[in-house]
Design a protein around this nucleic acid. Structure first.
Lengths: 126, 126
DNA sequence: CAACTGTTATATGTATTATATAACAGTTGG
DNA sequence: CCAACTGTTATATAATACATATAACAGTTG
């Protein structure tokens, strides 16, 4: 479980969240598995414990983990279907923005679709 | 030229920017046409002059308008091709995010494309 | 009980957004 | 010329988000 964070404008707690979500969904962190303690992760990443806690708090609100005082935080994917739906809504939100821009600047549906196909393919070859 | 802004989390100056960009690109505000003065627009929208100025400053940086002290701000679309390219990059940025999510949650290329086609169509019927 | 877990309170610091007020500066019509 | 418009700049204030340090509090376990 290697997490790398950087000063790129995205808040640290967001970067930690995204890294952990990826680890959870890819199975790198499995159901019921324990996450690094907030103190140890803070030490590893050289950022504040409170920043890690913020990330963990949000992960719990969003259904990815469950945290128990004194014990730690554990992967919990009971709501995987709900999570998937939320992610689909997120995709729809982005697509709506894209289409707004595309319509305004006369970029065609075909161009967008071609771009998607291209990006999907180049992603596969990584 | 009716602009509506609201307290929805998007900064006021961003909302003003977006509304003006839309007006410019759709031709609602034409090349060389004068924009509302920052003071009058601030009064209309009941927000600070400085907030409007910030919006106008960014519009100038991004090539949509030119501002001259004492005279006002004018539509300037010399860089329309450059602007279009920037917008295509913006679309690509969103698509990259979408594909990251899609791959992680096993959402297929077809589902995304279908969604795009659907959103494009429903947009046309507005 | 020591050594881990997470929790909470307090305080500090920076950046962004937004505001009000006021003074300064350029343009233009009467 | 000057009044009445334009935009510009400085100063000060305030809310919010992000991130930090320190310290005390609380639950778990070998």
């Amino acid at each position: 479980m290697k997490i790398i964070i950087s000063n790129n404008g995205t808040p640290f707690y967001e970067q930690v969240k995204e890294a952990l979500i990826t680890a959870i969904i890819t199975g790198d962190l499995k159901e019921d598995e324990i996450l690094p303690s907030i103190r140890s992760l803070a030490k590893d990443l050289r950022i504040s414990v409170l920043t890690i806690k913020k990330a963990y708090d949000e992960l719990e609100k969003e259904g990815y983990i469950i945290t128990k005082q004194g014990k730690g935080s554990f992967v919990s994917l009971q709501n995987l279907e709900l999570i998937k739906e939320l992610k689909q809504q997120e995709i729809e939100k982005y697509l709506t923005k894209i289409i707004e821009i595309a319509k305004l600047y006369n970029i065609s549906e075909e161009e967008i679709i071609d771009l998607i196909k291209y990006l999907f393919r180049s992603d596969k070859n990584e």
